[in-house]
């Protein structure tokens, strides 16, 4: 009994009809192009396909030079954050059926980070900010067993442990767009994760780092970050909690 792979259940769950979708992708190859430009592609898609599937279809069937990052393809690795119809999303978590397919789908690289090629940006400035908030547990005691933590203490920072460092939030932030020195939402989220961890002893250090000209005070509460987060983290709320902690002088 040789087994066959199950056919796509898309056929039962969603509509089966294949249809043509136009993607307009912002291309840029620094080896060839002086300026980025927009290029159209028509692809056959099913409504339950993802934008990542559309990009793969372009790359594999039409134009192998299209460059983008991707890995896990189900929203957990954070590789494929991009701007889809003007909003920061993960390409692998954006289903075609959730977009208005009567119009073309615009896809471009996330903004505010140096464009490297097509949909790929240089992530180094983003990770530099992340590293600066000391995103690791700082605790002096070295217990025999696990450090104890109540369920409530653990729940306090649960939301911000979900971050996958995809940069969707930071690159949706208008403050970051014009001021690359701003730490950005993602770095603050990762600081939050430790500031409110009952086991950590260096909250004060991180609060001091973020009480900076380029720290939390630059946040204008536009909520772009909360809206962009593919993990549903309440980013703006986390930033506000850090602001309050700075005013209080403790977590």
């Amino acid at each position: 009994m040789a087994t066959t792979a199950p056919e796509a259940p898309a056929q039962e769950v969603g509509a089966v009809q294949a249809f043509t979708v136009t993607l307009i992708v912002r291309r840029f190859d620094p080896e060839k192009d002086a300026e980025p430009y927009w290029q159209d592609f028509d692809v056959e898609m099913y409504s339950t396909d993802r934008v990542l599937d559309a990009l793969h279809k372009i790359k594999w069937d039409q134009d192998g030079t299209l460059a983008f990052r991707r890995s896990c393809a189900h929203g957990i690795c954070g590789s494929d954050a991009m701007r889809i119809n003007g909003r920061n999303r993960l390409a692998c978590k954006t289903l075609i059926k959730d977009l208005d397919i009567t119009k073309p789908i615009y896809v471009e690289a996330i903004k505010g980070l140096p464009l490297e090629k097509d949909l790929i940006v240089d992530m180094e400035p983003f990770f530099e900010s992340y590293r600066q908030v000391q995103p690791f547990l700082i605790a002096s005691s070295k217990p025999e067993k696990e450090r104890l933590q109540t369920i409530e203490q653990r729940a306090r920072f649960d939301d911000t442990t979900k971050c996958i460092l995809c940069a969707a939030c930071t690159s949706s932030c208008p403050v970051f767009w014009t001021d690359g020195q701003y730490f950005g939402p993602a770095a603050i989220v990762n600081a939050h994760r430790f500031i409110f961890d009952s086991r950590d002893e260096a909250a004060q250090v991180r609060l001091d780092i973020l009480n900076d000209k380029e720290g939390v005070w630059r946040c204008r509460t536009t909520f772009n970050c909360s809206e962009a987060c593919p993990r549903g983290i309440e980013v703006t709320k986390a930033i506000a909690e850090v602001k309050q902690a700075i005013l209080r002088g403790r977590p």
Partner: peptide, 27 residues
């Protein structure tokens, strides 16, 4: 569509003594 590329100012944070941002925010 408008395009925004690299941040206008690269990351190069130096801590200064006085920090008025917090007070500005509270003000």
């Amino acid at each position: 569509m408008t395009t925004i590329d690299a941040p206008r100012t690269p990351v190069n944070r130096t801590r200064r003594g006085v920090n008025l941002e917090k007070w500005g925010w509270m003000y």
